[in-house]
Amino acid sequence: MLSFVLRRFASLVATLVVASAVVFTAMEVLPGDPAQVMLGTQAQPDTLAALRTKLGLDKPAPERYVAWVGGLVRGDLGTSYTYSTPVSELVGERLQVSLPLALLALSLTILVAIPVGALAAARRNSMTDLSIMGVTQVGIAVPNFWFAMLLVILFAITLRWLPAGGFPGWGNGPWPALRGLILPAVALALPQASILARVMRSSLLDTLGEDYVRTARAKGLSEGQALRRHALRNALIPVLTIVGLQFSFLIAGTIVIENVFYLPGIGRLVFQAINQRDLIVVKSVVMLLVASVIVVNFLVDIAYAIVDPRLRRRG
């Protein structure tokens, strides 16, 4: 098991190195001078030169790459051009919103999707199954910003239970902050949970047809016991893959929802940075998102090995 983790970790580091090189190169080959892009076409030559020096553009590319990666490793992501603050601070602040939001949405997704998917599979072709399939179909089809607006109208405007938007920060205790995240998390979770429930259902239906479930029944387990003790864990393996993909999506893919609820998250930061051509922020945040996807994949691999003994010895 340890050797499995170490090998996976080595491949994680290697992937990060390759990814950083790709992100760096992508920024390099963008047409035009980054300083020119950032300042616009009206810039004065001396302002341009000053920015070029500040960005280190007068140095050769390999040197800048090493400096950038060195900075990343130390947690120094550079200084934002538009905000004039260290990017790490900006990102740190935004992560305080995006990370809890993503985690909350993911927990909701898992807590709803797995039991619902399992129920649909256990009662296949019943009314329960058909209703679940119908609801999840709608959940996937409905645009989540529209669903978000419905949530706001119902829970914030009509019932006045939850705030319609904005984020009070964690300074006033966890509850006000969490209240601000509930509706966005629900809006984010609906399509994800619908997808995951369907994956769970079909995966469990597959495992229920396996020979070892029949063996379990021949031992005297009831249908429910065989499902819980033998089919469920086997069915979770494909579900894990989807959960990993969904988490990566939830960290980065929240731009629309953050705009609907006016949340100061990572998605909005990237959106603004791109509008303002703040390439330092764009480059660092893109790298951060790439790294989070790679780390989540690493965690999913470890989870695979915990669930499936066949993977522990191989690699």
């Binding site: 396996e210 020979d211 070892y212 029949r214 063996t215 379990a216 021949a218 031992k219 005297g220 033998h230 864990r233 086997n234 669930v307 499936d308 003994p309 066949r310």
Partner: peptide, 18 residues
């Protein structure tokens, strides 16, 4: 399992791999 036990054809898939 108690009064009747059963053995199946495919030993490769008859056991829970986990």
């Amino acid at each position: 399992g108690r009064a009747v036990g059963m053995v199946f054809q495919e030993p490769m898939t008859a056991l829970n791999p986990l």
